[in-house]
């Protein structure tokens, strides 16, 4: 089966499940579909750095959490009618989603630039450990920040608004998240096919040849990391809005691990790998979680089987062509 048909089927399937659940009066299923879309978005961000760029970041929870806190900080100030700062100019919080998204993208990109500048000085296993360490650093920073809830996190009473829509209606909020996912996936497809994407892919496979062509692989990797952080930051803001809650656990290293797991389950470096992986993860969490409190044992065994048996993931299995990874 051609990969583009699988992609179309996966995305149509996600949309149809949500619509069907909405029509059948099952708002919880709509919320689960929303969670799939948001996790897929977060993993799609990581997929650019990891799948195409070959940067095994075990610290992407940083960007997910930063996006979440961007939403939390802006919305909590807005709901308390308390400006974030007043000098040198008055900066108010906001409850408007588009502004929150812009903020999440900006801080995600900025954090990725700073972390990327330091981490990309190293490679291989050092890179993995350093990104992991940065994740922990932000985790402890979030805990140590009493103004925004410290270890307990921040709650938002009402979900943030989007002009013309009722975001508290599950299907409308799903629509927003799903539309963002589609736009980002389209951008990712364009990036992968662009000169930048092709060079990035080449920099993973044959860095010496890329350098010989006069391109600096580290610059490509830094930009990939920045875009990746921005997208994952946006997903973090949506995730915090879904739960109307943000806490330091969004920064925890387990989140970073799970984002990689989503990509692997779905298929590394494949456009809709994150969607397939996120869907499988949420289904397993619900199904196995219903069977046993210790469902993660089975998730671990499944993951081990996928890794040991080969890395095509679901999309690779369906497409029956060797993984690009």
């Amino acid at each position: 089966m051609a990969e583009r048909w699988i992609n179309a089927g996966l995305l149509a399937g996600l949309g149809l499940v949500a619509l069907w659940a909405w029509a059948a009066g099952a708002p919880f299923t709509v919320t689960l579909a929303t969670k799939v879309a948001i996790l897929a978005l977060a993993a799609a961000g990581l997929n650019l750095a990891l799948g195409i760029g070959g940067l095994v970041s075990l610290g992407h929870a940083v960007f997910f959490g930063i996006g979440g806190y961007a939403m939390g900080v802006l919305a909590s100030h807005a709901q308390a009618y308390d400006p974030i700062f007043t000098r040198p100019f008055v900066f108010e919080g906001t409850k408007s989603m588009p502004f929150i998204w812009l903020a999440a993208i900006a801080v995600g990109a900025l954090a990725a630039w700073v972390i990327g500048r330091i981490s990309l000085r190293t490679s291989g296993v050092y890179f993995i450990m350093i990104t992991l360490a940065f994740g922990q650093m932000f985790y402890y920073l979030a805990i140590s920040w009493p103004a925004y809830g410290g270890e307990d996190g921040l709650s938002i009473y009402v979900r943030n608004g989007f002009p013309g829509l009722d975001t508290l209606d599950p299907i409308q909020f799903f629509g927003i998240c799903f539309a963002i996912l589609l736009i980002v996936l389209w951008c990712m497809a364009r990036i992968a096919a662009s000169p930048f994407g092709l060079a990035l892919n080449a920099a993973r496979q044959a860095p010496t040849r890329v350098m010989a062509s006069g391109i600096d692989p580290d610059r490509l990797r830094l930009w990939a990391f920045v875009v990746s952080g921005a997208v994952t930051g946006l997903a973090g803001a949506l995730y915090a809005d879904l739960n109307r809650f943000v806490s330091p656990t969004m920064f925890s290293w387990q989140v970073s691990g799970e984002l990689i797991v989503l990509i692997i389950l779905g298929g590394v470096g494949r456009l809709c790998g994150p969607v397939a992986g996120a869907a499988l993860f949420v289904v397993l969490e619900q199904w196995l979680g219903g069977l046993s409190e210790y469902w993660q044992v089975f998730l671990g065994l499944l993951l081990l089987a996928v890794v040991l048996a080969g890395r095509g993931g679901i999309v690779g299995l369906l497409a029956r062509v060797p993984s690009r990874g």
Partner: peptide, 20 residues
């Protein structure tokens, strides 16, 4: 390294939940 990270992450899940 990616495969190593994933497989050993899977082992953490198995060990932690198994001990629990």
């Amino acid at each position: 390294h990616l495969d190593q990270v994933l497989a050993t992450f899977a082992l953490i899940l198995i060990f932690s939940e198994g001990v629990r």
